[in-house]
Amino acid sequence: MESNKISIVVLSDKREQLQMAGMIASVGAVSGNEVLVFISMNAMRYFVKGADEKAPCEGPVGELMAQKNVPPFKMLFEQAVTLGDAKIHPCSMAMDVLGIEQGGLEDYIGEAMGLTMFLDECKGGQVWSF
């Protein structure tokens, strides 16, 4: 099975963006790819331990997804880790700005990562940004 490196930068707080990022992370990871997710900016607050805030929609598809039984994006990110061995790391800068301590994020989120390490890790693979 061919394996690729897929790095996903998740910045948005919008439902559609978070959903697509979670879909690529989960399906990518369970298909034998090495998946690295880097969470920063406005996306960070959804991954605080126990956060259940609903992400606002950008448009009509987001509204429809909210009404239908679409897998929640947080579940997709967790499945990327538990079923596909993806690695999810929060941006150290966003952690500092938001005052979030290590351990304040969901258990499937790894340690804070800086840009130098992220840019090195994603070298040579696909990079997606949401």
């Binding site: 989960s26 369970v30 239908k68 039984n69 679409v70 997709l76 079923l83 596909g84």
Partner: peptide
């Protein structure tokens, strides 16, 4: 009742 990628992810959890 589940939408993509829900059924695939449910299969993967079950196949393990």
């Amino acid at each position: 009742g589940s939408f993509c990628p829900g059924p695939l992810m449910e299969l993967i959890a079950a196949i393990k």
